[in-house]
């Protein structure tokens, strides 16, 4: 984990400046500015309803699929504006993968779940697909458990396995960023520990943004932590600093459970 003594060496992957977000007339995010570094884990914490999920979804524009939304201000990936930089949202979603709060495997076989993404982009060759599927399942620490039952339905797996399958599915299209919205909230401590281990391994070559209500989890896995409150960014810093010497009184109160 990054400590205050070592300087940041990784470039900024995602940058947000003065970003407002509205569902229809309702303002949900208000004047956000922050940077997310490549190959780091950034945790987002804050009370329920403060806009964490909404913020996450802005990075791959997935909310555009179902609701009328309005984003103003700048959001960039590798210096290119996500909303106005001429990025194709379908390509953006391939580059910026997402793992949801509730495991949502397709009602298909384990193999088909992982192969779904590559197939979308025209990958047909059986041998290559097999390789991609195995690789993704290994990365998500699921391979040994499922290698003999790849043809079985994914909906018959346990919740923790399903969530790791969803991670494998996201990894199979080789994303640059992985957004995780409370990925462990439906899991038991053992499954949670597995996924946390995974996160630490995956950040070797992936930028990870994770929303969590579990402060210990944020402290364990993340390099940076951002604290949101009512749609505003109250404070963002190295996780170590946020948890030991936060600058804002509110952050400290929240972390010690004195409000929220």
């Amino acid at each position: 984990m990054l400590s205050p003594q070592t300087p940041e060496t990784k470039p900024v992957k995602l940058s947000v400046r003065n970003m407002d977000f509205r569902y229809g007339e309702k303002k949900v995010l208000d004047g956000l500015s922050l940077d997310i570094h490549a190959e780091r884990v950034t945790a987002i914490i804050g009370p329920s309803g403060c806009g964490k999920s909404t913020f996450l979804k802005c990075f791959n524009r997935i909310h555009e699929v179902s609701s009328a939304v309005k984003v103003s201000g700048d959001m960039q990936i590798d210096g290119v504006d996500i909303y106005r930089g001429g990025i194709d949202e379908v390509d953006l979603r391939r580059r910026v993968g997402m793992v949801f709060q509730k495991p949502n495997p397709f009602p298909k076989s384990i193999y088909e779940n992982v192969a779904f993404g590559p197939r979308l982009f025209g990958m047909k060759d059986k041998a290559t697909l097999d390789g991609i599927v195995e690789d993704a399942l290994r990365k998500s620490a699921l391979w040994d458990e499922v290698k003999d039952r790849l043809k079985e339905s994914a909906t018959g797996m346990s919740g923790g396995q399903q969530q790791r399958l969803c991670i494998a599915r996201a990894l199979a299209v080789n994303p640059e960023v992985l957004l995780m919205d409370e990925p462990c909230s439906a899991l038991d401590p053992i499954a949670t520990a597995k996924i946390e281990e995974l996160i630490v391994e995956l950040k070797e070559n992936l930028t990870i943004v994770i929303v969590t209500h579990n402060m210990q989890q944020a402290a364990r896995v993340s390099d940076y932590t951002a604290f949101f409150w009512l749609g505003k960014l109250i404070e963002m810093d190295l996780t170590e600093r946020i948890f030991t010497t936060p600058r804002e009184r509110m952050t400290e109160d929240y972390l010690t459970g004195r409000f929220g």
Binding site: I62, V65, V90, G97, N104, L120, F121, C166, A170
Partner: peptide, 20 residues
């Protein structure tokens, strides 16, 4: 909705999501 989101989240177009 979760299934559709999963599909879009992997970079599927609307037509691909409908068909697959």
């Amino acid at each position: 909705r979760e299934l559709k989101e999963a599909s879009y989240g992997l970079g599927a177009t609307r037509l691909q999501t409908i068909l697959k």
